[in-house]
């Protein structure tokens, strides 16, 4: 029983890592302040679940199709949203994405009025259980590989240049706006991917799984891990999931309440003692840069 639970937590941690890596691409590498990342996870999750539920007789075929479709769809929708929204800078961008996240949550809350299967505030039930540990693990490794290769290429350097100094990036001949759009959409498509995996892991979706607090959680993870560090994000995601979720089964309720009190205190302490996060912008093992 416990083993099964740990396996599920581990798979969940993989999903969160994929999402968080996407946010790190957006904020850590490109410097686009986004407080609505979880909503893209929600879009991917609900969309893929709707597909697999509607065409469940195709089995794994529709599962894979739904995942690919979710990735492409979140990429396109976030690209379209980014076209107006990325004209905003720093805090204002954060507020606009936060607003977008809340709008998505409200739409999901009301989704049953259009698609009754989506369940609205009651949650979406009966999603086929396709996701298992090998699949998430394989997905995570592919995502890490792709991200690493992208970061250490022209695209990655463009993004870092933009984060470091927008005007200098322009002076380097970089099409700042277009690269930002691309980074935002790519990062969001990671979230869509992770959402699609997540939906078929727990087989139950609720709008509150993708609300403002989830977006904040993702932001916490990447800051804790270190902005602009893939190793940091991966380790912080796993630590975060295991400490916050994993302890739930082991500890008695009285201590669990205190866990939620101690966790923010640790957060405040870490921000003070290690402002650059666990890894800063360093990498370990083969995630290190080649130059």
């Amino acid at each position: 029983m416990i083993n099964l639970y740990i396996l599920q937590i581990f798979s969940y941690a993989c999903c969160i890592t994929i999402s968080a890596l996407g946010l790190n691409l957006i904020y850590g590498y490109t410097g686009l302040f986004s407080l609505g990342h979880a909503s893209f996870m929600g879009i991917g999750a609900y969309l893929s679940a709707l597909l697999t539920k509607s065409f469940s007789h195709y089995g794994y075929l529709i599962y894979i199709g739904a995942i690919i479709f979710s990735i492409i769809f979140t990429f396109l929708i976030s690209y379209l949203i980014a076209i107006p929204i990325l004209k905003l800078k720093s805090d204002y961008l954060g507020i606009a994405t936060l607003g977008f996240g809340i709008i998505v949550k409200v739409l999901l809350d009301n989704s049953d009025k259009v698609f009754s299967q989506m369940g609205g505030p009651r949650g979406m039930l009966g999603i086929p259980n396709f996701t298992n540990l090998p699949i998430v693990l394989f997905s995570l490794i592919m995502v890490i590989l792709f991200m690493r290769n992208l970061i250490y290429s022209k695209l990655g350097r463009n993004l870092i240049a933009i984060r470091e100094d927008e005007n200098a990036a322009y002076a380097m001949g970089i099409n700042v706006y277009k690269q930002r759009l691309l980074a935002f959409a790519l990062g969001c498509s990671f979230a869509g991917f992770s959402g699609a995996l997540y939906a078929h892991l727990y087989c139950f979706l609720h709008p509150s799984n993708f609300d403002f607090f989830r977006s904040i959680d993702l932001m916490l993870i990447i800051v804790l891990g270190g902005l602009g560090s893939m190793s940091g994000t991966i380790i912080a995601s796993f630590l975060w999931v295991f400490i916050l979720e994993g302890l739930r089964v082991i500890l008695p309720q009285a201590i669990l309440d205190w866990r939620l009190v101690i966790y923010p205190l640790l957060l405040i302490l870490l921000m003070l003692l290690r402002p650059q996060g666990i890894f800063g912008n360093k990498e370990i093992l083969w995630l290190k840069k080649e130059y």
């Binding site: 904040i216 932001m219 916490l220 966790y263 923010p264 205190l265 405040i268 921000m271 003070l272």
Partner: peptide
């Protein structure tokens, strides 16, 4: 500073 504010809020 922002994350700290969020931490204070959660606390």
């Amino acid at each position: 500073l922002l994350i700290t504010a969020i931490g204070v809020s959660f606390f």
